[in-house]
């Protein structure tokens, strides 16, 4: 006799709760104006989206958007460092 399926919390809900808890921690411990480019927050938001809409047609587009956004954040901070090294020759 198994537990009635209606009473079980589906795994995606646990995932959403976990990711939301991490986001809440970041909100608590970091200035709000920096969170739009916070690596952890962005990945957790993407985790929530994947848990809820991982099988939708929108998922690849959102994934591409997230990757592009993170790539832009990284490049904005790191590329000047690399260029400074290459320019020094």
């Amino acid at each position: 006799m198994g537990e009635p399926s209606g009473r079980r919390i589906p795994p995606p809900v646990w995932e959403v709760l976990g990711a939301a808890a991490v986001i809440a921690w970041r909100f608590r411990s970091h200035p709000l104006n920096t969170l739009w480019r916070d690596w952890v927050v962005i990945l957790c938001l993407f985790w929530i989206f994947t848990a809820l809409a991982g099988r939708t047609k929108a998922w690849p587009a959102v994934t591409a958007l997230v990757m592009t956004f993170l790539l832009a954040i990284y490049a904005a901070g790191q590329v000047p460092q690399t260029l400074a090294v290459l320019r020094s020759f």
Partner: peptide
């Protein structure tokens, strides 16, 4: 590197699930 920060970390989310 950029690949780990932007692409690989994002790719880990669906794959780990």
């Amino acid at each position: 590197g950029a690949s780990a920060f932007a692409l690989g970390s994002t790719a880990l989310v669906p794959l780990l699930r």
